[in-house]
């Protein structure tokens, strides 16, 4: 199997011709995870992986499916509430990392008098509001411009399944991710699924049997890197079993 992507090692300089050139309205080159700019014009990588470029967005990043999740602004994550302080919930995104703060008022319709009550270990589907290397990440469950939740908020039922970070990105990427399993299952049965960029999915299939079947199927697609045909086959098998 040939990979047409360029493979880079940490410290490699990415040649200028491999990067998209800014044209038209987009004047700046955007560097994503794994790339570092060293003035005046050197771009080098910091992790090992394949170089991916998007000429339309004038962006380049390093694709790698390993390691720990590092929060980035705008990511959808599934956070676990640990403790509650006077103004915010302390949540974890990955084990053994500093708490991410989820303010009590960052929920839809929350006010000082009606605060959401979340017990320790409850799950919240949230967006990373800010994440820099110098501060603990901050989460939010509302869109700041509309004040609506847009589907974010406490996850009341379902079961947690761990998937790889790359699989989480694929599930959130829609068509580009090449995951047709959920559509194929959704034609025949109803279920809810929430995907967090931190490698967590919460599946609620209404009953234990279908929840488990769907969660296991998603993990199987991840581990065995199933293609579209194999995914449809798997979906048929799952539908038959429940």
């Amino acid at each position: 199997m040939a990979v047409d992507t360029m493979v880079v090692l940490p410290g490699d300089t990415v040649p200028q011709e491999a990067l998209p050139t800014p044209m038209g309205k987009k004047k700046h080159l955007t560097l994503g995870p794994g790339l570092r700019h060293m003035p005046p014009s050197t771009v080098s990588s910091t992790i090992a992986g394949g170089l991916v470029t998007d000429p339309k967005k004038v962006a380049a990043w390093i694709e790698s499916n390993s390691g720990r999740y590092l929060p980035a602004t705008g990511d959808l994550v599934i956070a676990t509430v640990q403790t509650s302080t006077a103004e915010a919930f302390n949540c974890t995104l990955t084990p053994h990392t500093p708490y991410a703060a989820l303010p009590h008022l960052a929920f839809e319709g929350a006010s000082k008098k009606t605060r959401p009550q979340l017990a320790p270990n409850s799950l919240v589907y949230a967006r990373v509001a800010s994440a820099t290397k110098d501060f603990a990440p901050e989460l939010t469950c509302v869109d700041p411009s509309t004040g609506k939740s847009e589907g974010l908020g406490p996850l009341k039922s379902g079961m947690v399944f761990k998937i790889s970070l790359g699989m989480a990105r694929r599930l959130l990427a829609g068509k580009k991710g090449g995951v047709v399993l959920l559509e194929a299952l959704g034609e025949k049965m109803g279920f809810e699924i929430a995907v967090g960029r931190n490698g967590v999915v919460v599946v609620d299939g209404g009953n234990v049997k279908s929840t488990l079947a769907i969660g296991k199927a998603v993990q199987e697609v991840d581990e065995q890197a199933l293609g579209e045909k194999a995914q449809k086959k798997l979906a048929d098998r799952v539908l038959k079993s429940v």
Partner: peptide, 20 residues
């Protein structure tokens, strides 16, 4: 050698792209 190891890693991670 290091490059070939990383290439194998990337190929393994991206095998879903060419899977059927």
């Amino acid at each position: 050698w290091l490059r070939s190891v990383v290439r194998t890693k990337v190929e393994h991670e991206q095998r879903w792209k060419s899977a059927r």
